[in-house]
Design a binder for these strands. Structure first.
Lengths: 223, 223
DNA sequence: GAACTTTATTTGGCACACCAAATAAAATTT
DNA sequence: AAATTTTATTTGGTGTGCCAAATAAAGTTC
């Protein structure tokens, strides 16, 4: 075979897209290297190849920007990833925190026909099981308005939209404290000593660290 | 990433398995090279690696044999391939001759959990859309008793089981003449000039070359 | 069995995606 | 602004999977 589609390239594109989303001010080779757990030299090399392909621009201040073409390609991969996640959860009965690694593989399957049919088969779901929006066929994606729990007030009820981290450890953790997309949360208090959060979920009461709270993204619940 | 599961290895294993099935007397590096469209030198190199991994035995007469371990692994890949084909046809509405290349990609997705759930979701299908048997979780596979149309008589009705070739061109061809797994066929006659076959399919009458007939595998139809 | 032909193996090379260590450039501190 | 620290880039190297061309071995023909 020796061609393996654009496995690596797609991963770079996704990483760049996510960094841009996270509004990292200056996306450098090292930042990408950290995100993908690679050596900066490797990233630099790849960025030059991807510049040639007009997928990224390398700006004079050494920052990296996705081109229109690059963004589109990134969104295509994200679409695939999220649709496969829906499939795994809705059809095969995986739980929402088991599917990330599998989708990471499936997203590289190279066929628009396949992914469009999958979309239709799943009923054109707007969100994946983590609460993230799924780009449509044309790459259109719903803007996420969720904010980290750490920027929220005590009192009102919030609904968990999605998460800012996707590490296994974190997802495992969320499973333990039973926080999932859609969960309704109230902040009961913040511990003055270690900044940990006391949360109310229905009738359950849960403690989470500040670090965890910062990665839980919520929207004000309507009631 | 740079690990790509065992993409190539799985392809070698499949090719070897198929050659053994086809009862090729002496499976040589060149035979495998031809099957996979590779250089014999490449195959030799790979076979040595796979020998170390105890996936194949390199016999003194230079022939290659799958070990128990190798066969098992080949069957795992074949199982995946065929289950994905069923999924693509039954759930996503692809036609049985469109799915091979997609399944070729999907079969390398590395998760037994996934494939077992898929199996269950599809209702443990015993055959894929081409009529080939699907190995179960343990690698058990139904013996195929089908024979090439070229070894059949004029007169009786046969049912198409599967095909000995999977090239796009051939599958396309079958689509044109509307021969699919399950089709009922009677041999009307063999043209003395070019050995081509006149077939009766229901009320349709079809001419196929000897080459094509040799790749159409059938079983006697029960009525 | 010598000559020829076919098949198998070795050799040297390539592209890809990666890394570690060395060097160069930029930013920060003093 | 000089010294130091941090960040970026270059350089040389790796493993995997591949190839073409050269050589060696096996098989065939005369």
């Amino acid at each position: 075979m020796v061609h393996f589609a654009n496995y690596s390239e797609e991963n770079y594109l996704k990483a760049l897209y996510k960094l841009e989303l996270r509004q990292v001010k200056k996306i450098t080779n090292s930042a990408v290297a950290k995100a993908l757990d690679l050596n900066p030299a490797t990233v630099l090399e790849m960025m030059r190849k991807m510049e040639q392909k007009k997928l990224v621009e390398l700006l004079p201040d050494k920052s990296i920007k996705l081109t229109e073409k690059g963004s589109k390609k990134a969104l295509r991969t994200i679409r695939r990833h999220r649709l496969w996640e829906v499939f795994l959860v809705k059809k095969l009965g995986f739980t929402w925190n088991e599917v990330h690694d599998l989708a990471e593989q499936l997203e590289h399957i190279d066929s628009d026909e396949l992914v469009n049919r999958l979309d239709e088969y799943l009923g054109f779901p707007p969100f994946d099981p983590h609460g993230d929006p799924i780009p449509d066929k044309l790459g259109k994606i719903k803007k996420q308005v969720a904010v980290p729990l750490t920027s929220c007030q005590q009192g009102p009820t919030y609904q968990v939209q999605h998460f800012a981290e996707t590490s296994d450890a974190f997802l495992q953790y969320l499973g333990q404290v039973q926080i999932a997309p859609g969960s309704k949360i109230k902040i009961v208090g913040i511990n003055a000593y270690d900044q940990s959060y006391s949360l109310q979920l229905g009738r359950r009461s849960v403690q989470v660290s500040e670090k965890a709270a910062a990665n839980i993204l919520v929207q004000p619940a309507d009631h």
